[in-house]
C-alpha cells in the first residue's frame, strides 16, 4: 500500500500487486505473470539505483 509506505517514511516505493500477492497476479497465465513480475523487479532495481532527494513512488 503506497499510502502506508509513504506514511511510515519509506523512501523508495514501487507500486506493485495486491496485498495478498505484491509480486503476483493470479489473473494472468503463468508465463505472462512472470513477465509482469520481471517488470516489477526491474523497476525495483532501477529504484535502488536512482538518486532521490525525497520519498519517491516508482510506477511499474
Amino acid at each position: 500500500m503506497t499510502s502506508v509506505a509513504t506514511a511510515v517514511g519509506a523512501n523508495r516505493i514501487v507500486r506493485a500487486g495486491r496485498i495478498p500477492h505484491p509480486t503476483g497476479d493470479p489473473t494472468q497465465d503463468p508465463e505472462h505473470e512472470l513477465e509482469w513480475r520481471k517488470r516489477v523487479m526491474q523497476v525495483s532495481l532501477d529504484a535502488l539505483a536512482a538518486r532521490i532527494e525525497k520519498q519517491t513512488i516508482f510506477e511499474t
Binding site: G17, H21, P22, T23, G24, D25, P26, L34, R37, K38, V40, M41
Partner: peptide, 8 residues
C-alpha cells in the same frame, strides 16, 4: 514467488 519473487 508472488511474495518473494526469486524466479523473476
Amino acid at each position: 514467488n508472488r511474495m518473494v519473487p526469486v524466479d523473476a
